[in-house]
Computed example of a mutant assay.
Amino acid sequence: MRLERLTGDDPRDLLRALRAALGAGPAIALGAPPRGALPDEVPAGTAVVLTTSGSTGVPKSVVLSRHALTSSALATAARIGAGRWLLPLTASYVAGVQVLVRGLVQGEEPAILSGRFSAQAFVHVASGMHSSRHGIRVPTYTSLVPAQLQTLVGAAEHDPDVSRALASFETILVGGQALPAALRERAGALGARIVRTYGSTETSGGCVYDGVPLDGVRVAAVDGELRIAGPTLAEGYLGDPERTAEVFATDADGVRWYRTGDVGTVADGVVSVTGRVDNVVVSGGVNVSLDRVERVVRELPGLEDAVVVGAPDDRWGETPVVVAARASVAEEETALAAARTAAEAAIGKPARPSRLVLVDTLPRLASGKPDRRAIRALVG
């Protein structure tokens, strides 16, 4: 099958290309692979080759089939319902691709928020989405990252137009990173119906909703690492059979599993994610999950959007360091003391952050996720 590289960043161009890719083709390449890194031909059934490095890793070109993408879209509709979708995300990341695929599968043209994301732009597009079919209102849905939800909630608490826009959606999916409980509660108080999602490019986006896998998806914890199986899995990494074999493992029963690299548990069918296998520092000889520290810190006022990274420490070897936007923190010493107290109470003394670093703006990837490599560089 022929592979075409999509140039430009207009979501409407991607929508047109996806419509073809989900049919007879050609497949489309998204992301920014090194020049000459992708072939002109890809396996039959491929819809999208999405090159991503996430927030920490090296580039990888994930092969997503028509079957995987449509299976994900259909499973989402089965879980939360069908209707019209709003795309406020970067279209060339898997969450954005899936919003468009859901619209195509459901036969409803997605609404698109173009340009810079803001509460006012969100209200403008959301207000124009209302429609009916046979006299019955068509439900609306959207997908956000936590930083976008934080922007909307902050505005909605003072602007009734934003509050009405949030409450108008049947469901708002939120993924890409951990969602602070306090932020979800604030959104719920405004009438927003939030569903927390978990997944990755390798699973065609979110495949676990509020801890429960979508229909057809299986999640297991093997030696503490979460593994995922089901029809939404990617075919692997284009041109990298060794990595594909390492990450996508087939068990003795012939079931193909994706090794997520995430630490978590599955209890009574509910998935809990506690962090990354490799996002750990050794502080005073004790392994400390930076993800766990970050979850604790983000429940504190003013630190809801903070990022926790590791940094060398002369005494302890390594320690967690909190990085936050200067405008959100009223008093630096008080915020650091609160973060240290909360981390010690929840995890233990080695988890106490050694510093709070304030920056004008937290570096982010185009997907809206924190750019952890850039943030670690700021810490030094």
Rank of each mutant, 00 (worst) to 15 (best):
P301S: 08
G285F: 04
V266S: 15
I228D: 01
A29V: 03
A95E: 03
F117H: 13
A343M: 09
G254N: 13
G224M: 12
E344M: 11
G317S: 09
V323G: 03
A75I: 08
A306P: 00
L300F: 03
A335M: 07
Y258L: 15
T70P: 00
V271L: 04
S272F: 04
V222N: 07
S131D: 10
A346Y: 01
T140C: 15
P39F: 05
N279I: 01
L179E: 04
T90F: 06
D210M: 14
G317H: 07
L290N: 03
D262A: 07
R19C: 10
A221E: 05
A229H: 00
V99P: 00
L69H: 00
E225S: 05
A339E: 00
G96I: 01
E242Q: 15
R186E: 07
R79P: 13
A178H: 10
A351Y: 00
G348V: 03
S289I: 02
A111S: 10
G191M: 10
A325D: 13
G206L: 05
L89K: 03
T7N: 13
L22T: 07
V212C: 06
L69S: 02
V273L: 06
T56M: 11
A167F: 12
A91Y: 03
G368C: 08
R227L: 07
L6I: 08
E318Y: 06
G239N: 09
A17V: 02
D268G: 14
V123I: 15
R315Q: 15
R218S: 11
I28P: 00
R372L: 12
L86T: 03
P34E: 11
S200H: 08
A338R: 13
V288R: 07
R259W: 03
R364H: 13
G275D: 04
G191S: 09
E242V: 13
A47T: 03
G275N: 05
R79G: 11
L173Y: 01
V162W: 00
H67V: 12
G317C: 06
R116I: 08
V281R: 11
V174K: 04
V322A: 04
S328A: 15
L64P: 00
A221G: 06
P353N: 12
A77E: 10
R116Q: 13
L22V: 09
R218E: 15
T260I: 07
R259K: 13
Q177T: 05
A252E: 15
D305K: 11
V293Y: 00
R186D: 04
A327F: 07
D278E: 14
H124T: 15
S132V: 08
